[in-house]
């Protein structure tokens, strides 16, 4: 009796009273259609635990998963002029911005963060797809420039994580100019001899793929993500033919030589750390090879800019110190 009233009946009530519970507790995997419980899905980094399909994941969660101990500092991006064209389609761009800001709690579609990965100083410029499809306008360009400047100054690696449909139309040609702007920015990092890694996630298309996202030293792509220049619909309307299977997916780009590797979300951190370790710690446990310019930055690709940095761990420590100092600066700037 007790067992029935106290356990079974509430259970039944709980099932029948489901209308009161939020309807987003469960969701269907877009790939295998398996049901996914929100908490389990989140714990699994938004990867379907039935078929391994990678869904989009919030940039903040991504950053937590990438940095050592999930710790990072966000770097304030200087504010750029809002709505320079006074653009208006069916809605005013100013209103769209307001909505996206309310929805995401961010100023624009980019997050710049710095921290350590495997002990190596890293600056990440990551896109927030929820903010107007991660589209790139002046503010996003500013974010990439800021990230590149901080990385170059601090002797840190730069990692870009695009998730963007492309240029932000509402900023007209100003958004187009973010293509050369971001390329000039990441070139500062390359010129300092520091690694520039791109982690391509869903989607990386249009003006974003045709600029900073495709000129990384190393391209790592997330399984199944869309990467391409022109939209599928535009191509289909142009050629009037069926598109090949798997067209513009990460795997397709791997097969065509455009990315170095396709790496599942859960292995991305260790992959990046391994690469950074190889690039930053050139002589580890060396047996009589000497320590030859161990940290990057001391031997810039274009030379002429030698900063006279010494060997491995000392240089790293120095880099970390520079990093700390700039942290303070950044934080001071953020307070201002």
């Amino acid at each position: 009796m007790n067992w029935l009233t106290n356990f079974i009946r509430p259970k039944i009530r709980a099932i029948t009273a489901q209308k009161e519970t939020p309807d987003n507790l469960w969701q269907k995997c877009p790939s295998c259609e398996g049901m996914l419980f929100h908490r389990d899905l989140r714990e699994n980094m938004n990867i379907c635990y039935h078929c391994g399909y990678h869904m989009r994941v919030a940039m903040v969660d991504r950053l937590r998963a990438l940095f050592d101990n999930g710790e990072f500092q966000e770097i304030q991006v200087p504010r750029t002029p809002h709505d320079p064209l006074k653009f208006r389609d069916r809605k005013r761009y100013a209103d769209r911005l307001k909505e996206s800001r309310a929805k995401t709690g961010r100023d624009d579609a980019i997050i710049v963060a710095q921290g350590l990965m495997g002990g190596v100083p890293v600056v990440v410029a990551g896109f927030d797809f929820d903010f107007m499809g991660g589209s790139m306008g002046a503010a996003v360009g500013e974010g990439i420039v800021t990230a590149a400047q901080v990385a170059a100054r601090a002797g840190a690696a730069l990692i870009a994580i695009p998730s963007s449909g492309g240029a932000r139309m509402q900023e007209g040609a100003i958004s187009l100019m973010q293509m050369p702007r971001t390329i000039a920015a990441v070139d500062m990092v390359k010129e300092a001899g520091l690694p520039y890694i791109v982690l391509l996630t869903d989607p990386t298309t249009g003006g974003v793929s045709a600029s900073f996202a495709m000129i990384g030293d190393i391209h790592i792509a997330e399984p199944g993500c869309t990467i391409g220049f022109a939209g599928k619909r535009v191509i289909q309307e142009t050629i009037r033919e069926e598109l090949p299977k798997g067209f513009q997916t990460a795997e397709y780009l791997l097969a065509h030589g455009m990315v170095d590797m396709v790496v599942p979300r859960k292995e991305q951190r260790e992959t990046i750390i391994r690469i950074l370790d190889l690039v930053f710690r050139k002589t580890k446990d060396s047996q009589g090879f000497g320590e030859n310019g161990a940290a990057p930055g001391g031997n810039g690709r274009r030379n002429g800019k030698k900063k006279g940095r010494g060997g491995g761990i000392a240089a790293l420590r120095r880099a970390a110190n520079i990093n700390k100092r700039s942290d303070k600066k950044v934080r001071a700037a953020a307070r201002r």
Binding site: M179, I183, T205, S209, A210, S211, F212, A213, M214, I215, I227, G228, F229, A230, I235, F247, Q248, H256, G257, M258
Partner: peptide, 10 residues
Amino acid sequence: EERGQAEAIA
């Protein structure tokens, strides 16, 4: 796309 339009432009 196959031959890397985005990369070529970048």
